[in-house]
Design a protein around this nucleic acid. Sequence first.
DNA 1: CATGCGTGGTG
DNA 2: TCACCAAGCAT
Length: 305
Amino acid sequence: MIGNAMSEPTFATLVSRWYERNARDLPWREPGVGAWAILVSEVMLQQTPVVRVLPAWRAWLDRWPTPAALAEDTPAEAIRMWGRLGYPRRAVRLRDCAVAIVERHGGEVPDRLDQLLALPGVGTYTARAVAAFAFSQRHPVVDTNVRRVVCRAIAGEPDAGPATRPADLVATEKLLPAEPAAAALASAAFMELGAVICTARSPRCAMCPVESVCAWRASGQEAPSGPSRRPQRYAGTDRQVRGLLLAVLRETTGPVPHQRLDQVWPDDVQRTRALAGLVTDGLVEPVGEDSFRLLGDGPPMVPLS
DNA sequence: CATGCGTGGTG
DNA sequence: TCACCAAGCAT
C-alpha cells in the first residue's frame, strides 16, 4: 500500500491534472448542462471546428431546448438552423434522433450505451461521449484526437489508423481510472490534449504534460508517414454542387423552381445527379412538376384523385 | 473496409 | 496559392 501511495502518477492522472488547469471553457462542459445539450454538441462537433459550433449550438438549444421540441418541427427548419456547419444530413439525423428519443424513451436522452448507439446519427464515438460526459459512466471515448494521443504516447507511433478499431477502445480503456467520474474526466482530458497540444501537424511537445513519459518522444518522434490516402478534391465534386443547391433551398421558404436551381451549376448531368442525391438522402423533396423544397418545408403534397 | 458526405480557416 | 484539415456516421 505504501508502494502504491508512492507510485508515479498514472498517464490519466497527469493529463487530467493538466486538463483541470488548462481546459478551454466550452459551454457544453459547464456543470448542469443536460444530456440533450451534450448530445447536440457532439453531433455538431462531428467534423466541424469548435469555433463554428459555438454560436450554432446556442441558437439550436435556444430554439429546441428538448428533443420533443425539435421532434415537433420540420426537417426543413432543422436544415436551416444548421446553417453552414457542413454535412447537413447531420441536421436531419439529429431531428430523427429527437423523434426516436421521444418515441422510444419518453423524450429523455437514454443513458444506456446500446440505446444511444441505436439512435440515428449516433455512432461509436458519440454514444460513448454522451454516456461518459452526460451520465458519468466509465467508457473509453475514442475520437481522432484520443487515437492520436494514445497511438503516440503509448505505442510510440506517429499516426493512428484511419478509423476507430476495437483495439483502440481496449488500449484507451486500460488508461482510464476505475472511478467513473474520473474516467470521464480523463477522456475529456485526452481529447483536449489531442486537440490543443498533441495536434496532427505540429505537436507542441514543450507544453505537453506527458512529454516525459511519451513513447513517441522517447523513440525520436518519428515523423508521420506520407499521405496514406489521397483526399478527395472539393472543387468540382458532387459535394460542392449539393452545397450550392442546398444554399439556395435554405434561403428560400417553400418550393424553388428547378430553373433557379439550374443556375448554380452549369453541368446538367452533375447538377441533376446532385439534386437526386439530396432527395435520396432525405434533405430535399420534389414538389409538383418542376420544383423542389427542403424536406417538409410546407404542407404535404396531396395526390389528385 | 473504402467512400461519400460541407464548410471555412490556415500554414 | 491550395492542400489539409476539424470531437464521425452510414453504407
